[in-house]
Design a protein around this nucleic acid. Sequence first.
DNA 1: TTGACATATCCGGATATCCGGATATTATCG
DNA 2: CGATAATATCCGGATATCCGGATATGTCAA
Lengths: 152, 152
Amino acid sequence: MATEHSTTIVQPGRGRALLPARDAGVERIAKFFRALGDPTRLRLLEFLLDAEHTVSECVELVGLSQSRVSTHLACLTDCGYVAARREGRFTYYRVTDPRVAELVFLAHALAADNATALEACMRIAPSPESVVTSAASEGRRGRSPGVRGARS
Amino acid sequence: MATEHSTTIVQPGRGRALLPARDAGVERIAKFFRALGDPTRLRLLEFLLDAEHTVSECVELVGLSQSRVSTHLACLTDCGYVAARREGRFTYYRVTDPRVAELVFLAHALAADNATALEACMRIAPSPESVVTSAASEGRRGRSPGVRGARS
DNA sequence: TTGACATATCCGGATATCCGGATATTATCG
DNA sequence: CGATAATATCCGGATATCCGGATATGTCAA
């Protein structure tokens, strides 16, 4: 059905469903939520809710490489969660829109009421080998497991 | 830096930062947001905000395989966004907590005020080959590009 | 101008996450 | 009981996303 090229297009628009129209908005909101789906970014955001901070301070907080933290902050900025203010060699980041705090607060409240279920939710991405993975490696990497990876 | 085994542990807890404590909560909230970071799940959630629907109806809405839709709905249920009600061979899903609508509404409002920047946000995951990828393949797959994948 | 500091961007490498197809499960109907 | 319908779960396969290290960019001080 149709060729659907999209040569240089950056945003494929997923596997084309029955209602292609009005879908564009959903993709945007999803991206918006995805930005907070990473523990590090969420931590940084909460850190920037209280006060203004430099990249270095953020690096010290999360303990990741400067390059990664810088990128995470750039992402939060692009998504409109925080604002960047350059002053000399430093760049100060902070949350300016009060609705951001509302969003985070609301999520905390909702998640709190479903802590147990959420904690157990492992679906959506079972992971390649999972069982007996015994990731006894040196603790390198690690990322975040995933939303409902089901296994047992 | 210690051995850090975590043999059979399912939730590694990412690369251990400077403040291991209180971090557990962040991971949970991040997972909570991640659930809405997928366009399909978000679409299903908005679909279930208005009324109760069966898996089949959801499949028809998004146009993906029944197995995938079923898993997506299970994920939303686990995360506490929707409730499932079994009646005979059918399973009816729906949003019960009014705060979910608030959360979605708030996100729409915030994202709307940053539509342009958000649309351009391609960071965090540059993608392997990107340049001149000219994904002229058969349009198979597609998923969602990503939050700020930077490329030019 | 040169050197040091604070950030930003680029580059492979390692996972997490998503997808469809096959199969298992549960329930209704004849 | 056997067949069919509606869901749920399992399995490889394909990407998106994250990470650290190297490098580029911009700023201030001597």
